[in-house]
Design a protein around this nucleic acid. Structure first.
Lengths: 335, 335
DNA sequence: ACATCATGTCGAACCGGTTCGGTGGCTAAT
DNA sequence: ATTAGCCACCGAACCGGTTCGACATGATGT
């Protein structure tokens, strides 16, 4: 391994001059700069990022923390952050919290110990104590998808109440009144907002919500499956089901198939978020989708800005809310 | 930040003793050890991984490099490696090469500069020069999925010729003779082996293969779509199609749906590898699946063994080949 | 009683960079 | 001619650990 000292010796300058040449070339004399660059070429010198991190107190790594990388939604965001990160010289360190707040916290602390430059986080914790933890974190954090009230961090997400409002209005328009709603964990911001969107739209339309038709599927496949099963085995089963995310929506479809119900003839279905290959699933599911790529873009830009400049670090936190898009499928029919 | 020197001062020992206490407690006197641990508790000292990496010349990070994290297959493997890694104190640094060999190589070099402890790699490069690059890499590497001849590294994968052999035999048994095969990039080991499995089974059964029915879909959704389109728009279109991986297989299904063909009534379909939610796709696709979790387990174990012990580092490379499993769906019918 | 050895601890060098307070030489202002 | 100021460069301290050789002490062997 050739070090900065080897380069200095070869170029007959001090190591501090080499360091200068590397970091602020304009502050070094033209001829000297030339000699140094020659020496770098001929030795094949590559700066040691670890030593640099130790000396600078900050690495060129960016952290990406989410609940479930298997979910295409997070995958798309990750890809975008990784792309922009690499372009700016950052490596992306990925960690999957599996939706566990305690694990997520441990991960964040480990990332911080690595002197990571910044973190993109889809939080799974909640509550005041957690918000304080996030607020006092010294490393720049940009939150996406899940907003944590009181964390006072940049946030990039979608208009979540709107997602379910759109789907609910759509179903109401088709004549549905008994609508089952498979919600997410009430510790999650998006889950609460989506539930709110549903409830408000229903009551706003003068339709009373049967509370037993609102179930909590944990945003997961297994949770969604169990709850869809509960909804569909009832005598007075709903005429339509809304899945608050892609996992629970598809789980509901799976249950319908397993139980021999036909969608949409027997039960209508709509959900929030897309999945890969949704266009080969029969029936094409009616959904509201978020622009994951755009979300990733915004999150990455904001994070890089925070990291790069001192003024970026002190700017007040900002929210970026995108409007989701309605995609009509064939999984909903007029009653 | 409290450092090792703070702890040393508080425990009234030298910093080297604190370091000893941390790394080989049995070499430190009981009473001294006690004082040091007290000091650690009371200061809340946490070792700085960056400084440790610099001093040791090796970090506690593991790299995971694959072509497409969005593909569930890689996702499952990643999850397993991450799980085992975390259990052993390793963080997993993920990088997506997007299937580009040059990018992959750059990523590997960056990982090495981070003094990463080990790498799990699904290679996308090929050729002798690339094999040499991998062989001479100083960091432990365990390869999975894609074997690179001459790299002389541990390899964890499936019996790839068998995957397509099984599918081909299945289709032959159903009376199919004109079978379209959407292959992967011939720079990839798995693609070649799967193609070989198909060709050998066909000729072994005395069936001549129409070379124009063997196309190269690049293992990607778009490539698979284009090639499936070519196959299905022919007058003498095949009666069955095999997708060499999940992307191309599903792309073929998508084309069938777009063109109004019914599967399996008009064209039969089979593919290698599963996708999430395949059980809500109609028809249920006949496939041969790899045990991704088991693959991840093996890869992680092997990598950790290489990293942990000096004898592990010198052990000769070994191949671990798993047998894939046939999953019969309803996408293939008797002619 | 003396050489031998194991045990516990320490000092100092080292890993490979960054950064800050100089210093010497040269030009510009007074 | 003197002072001021700037430019290019350097020395040394520092980031926070690890590791190795040395040393003091007390136990063991003969």
């Amino acid at each position: 391994m050739t070090t900065i000292r080897d380069v200095a010796r070869l170029a007959r300058v001090s190591i501090s001059t080499v360091s200068l040449a590397l970091n602020s070339p304009q502050r070094v004399g033209a001829e000297t700069l030339d000699r140094i660059q020659q020496a770098i070429k001929s030795t094949g010198y590559r700066i040691d990022p670890v030593a640099q991190t130790l000396a600078r107190g900050r690495s060129s790594l960016i952290g990406f923390v989410a609940a479930n990388l298997g979910n295409m939604f997070f995958g798309d965001i990750r890809r975008e952050i990784e792309r922009q990160g690499l372009d700016n010289g950052y490596f992306v360190l990925i960690a999957d919290s599996s939706g566990r707040a305690d694990l997520e916290r441990a991960l964040l602390e480990r990332l911080e110990a690595q002197k990571i430059a910044g973190i993109a986080l889809a939080a799974n914790g909640h509550g005041e104590e957690y918000a304080t933890f996030l607020r006092d974190f010294k490393t720049p954090i940009v939150m996406f998808d899940q907003k944590v009230e009181g964390a006072e961090r940049d946030f990039v997400g979608s208009d979540n109440p709107l997602t379910t409002t759109i789907l609910t209005e759509h179903l109401l328009q088709l004549g549905h009144r008994r609508i089952g709603f498979i919600s997410g964990p009430n510790s999650l911001h998006t889950a609460n907002e989506r539930l709110k969107g549903f409830m408000n739209t229903m009551t706003g339309a003068g339709v009373e919500v049967d509370p037993s038709l609102v179930v909590e599927g944990g945003y997961t496949r297994t949770g969604g499956h169990a709850q869809a099963m509960r909804l569909l085995t009832r005598r007075d089963r709903p005429t339509a089901i809304i899945g608050a995310n892609n996992m629970t929506g598809l789980a509901a479809l799976q249950v319908m198939q397993e139980m021999g119900f036909r969608c949409p003839d027997d039960v209508s279905l709509a959900m929030v978020d897309d999945v890969p290959w949704s266009n080969v699933i029969t029936p094409r599911i009616t959904m509201v989708v978020q622009d994951a790529q755009k979300l990733g873009e915004l999150a990455a830009q904001r994070l890089l800005a925070r990291i790069a400049s001192p003024e970026g670090a002190t700017a007040p936190p900002e929210d970026f809310i995108l409007t989701p898009r309605f995609v009509r499928g064939e999984s909903t029919r007029r009653l």
